[in-house]
Amino acid sequence: MNDQATYRGITLDGDSALALLDWQLEMGCDVPMLDAPVDRFDLPTRVAPEAPVPQAPPPPADDDLAGRVALAQALADGAGTLAALAEAQQGFDGIELKKGARNFCFADGNPKARVLILGEAPGDEEDRQGRPFVGRAGQMLDRMFAAIGLSRDGVDAERAFYVTNVLTWRPPGNRDPEPDEIAVSLPFLRRHVDLVAPDLIVLMGNIACQAAIEKRGILRLRGQWVQAFGRPALPMTHPSYLLRNPAAKREAWADLLSLQARLESLSV
């Protein structure tokens, strides 16, 4: 096979011809020459396609949040006891967190206690055990309230506390709850508070304040008595915050003394 070519009297070997082709490609020549010239000015005019008529974007998929909240409200209203409320809330499928959590975390402590502590959501250890406030933050919580003579295991309602969370299912990665997750949990939470009927509520952290009084900024809110679910409530920094910021324990102690004084005033 002849591996040479002649172009205008110049003989090229195969390697040289390929090298020239490569050079032409690098220079941008990517269309081969035809056997006959083409008059580009004589080509028919290309008609531009009609611009598509703008269409309104489809509405976002409606997950019927209002319907889920209404169902949660109906289930909560129909619960006459804490046991019935726990059963209704655990069976409610209108919250996606339920699919990824291991256990339902309803409450812990003495339901006849005068003090209800409202936390945010279960963490990893709570999710494992199915009880709120049992991890490191829970141990800190127990020590804090033991300092003013209150215990979740107390049989005497005067010396006990009851604890629950805004959410009863753990958010993945311990992220903050989404607004819709709080919204579908609120009917159960309101009914929960009504059934326990505590004298005082402690709002532990931003999420508890957001759900109960629609405010955030716990470092600004802490220590100031407010009304939540129709009852006196005291915002406090979450025990997990105190574990990360030990210097804040002084303010937490002041809040505990305020809670103790309020309890004593109600007993008179």
Rank of each mutant, 00 (worst) to 15 (best):
G14D: 10
G14E: 13
D15K: 11
L18E: 13
A19M: 07
A19Y: 03
L20K: 07
L20N: 06
L21A: 14
L25V: 10
M27I: 03
M27H: 12
G28R: 04
G28P: 06
C29W: 12
P32G: 08
M33V: 13
D39N: 13
D39E: 08
R40L: 15
F41M: 13
F41T: 15
F41E: 15
P44D: 00
P44W: 00
T45E: 11
R46Y: 10
V47F: 09
V47L: 15
V47K: 14
V47D: 10
P49L: 10
P54L: 00
Q55P: 01
Q55E: 15
P57E: 03
A61N: 01
A61F: 08
D62M: 01
D63V: 14
D64I: 00
L65T: 05
V69P: 04
A70H: 01
L71T: 14
A72H: 04
Q73H: 14
Q73T: 15
A76K: 07
A76N: 07
D77G: 09
G78M: 02
G78H: 10
G78V: 01
A79E: 08
T81H: 06
L82N: 06
A83L: 10
L85A: 09
A86S: 13
E87D: 15
E87I: 08
Q89V: 03
Q90H: 13
F92H: 04
G94R: 00
G94I: 01
E96F: 07
L97F: 03
K98G: 09
K99M: 08
R102C: 04
R102Y: 01
N103E: 09
F104C: 08
F104K: 05
C105G: 04
C105Q: 03
F106P: 03
F106N: 01
A107F: 12
G109H: 04
N110M: 09
N110C: 12
K112D: 15
R114G: 09
L116S: 09
I117E: 04
L118R: 06
E120H: 12
A121Y: 05
G123S: 15
D124V: 14
E126K: 06
E126H: 07
R128L: 13
Q129Y: 02
G130Q: 08
F133L: 14
R136M: 12
G138Q: 03
G138K: 02
Q139N: 12
M144G: 07
A146V: 00
A147P: 02
G149V: 06
L150A: 09
L150N: 08
R152V: 06
R152I: 02
D153K: 14
V155Y: 10
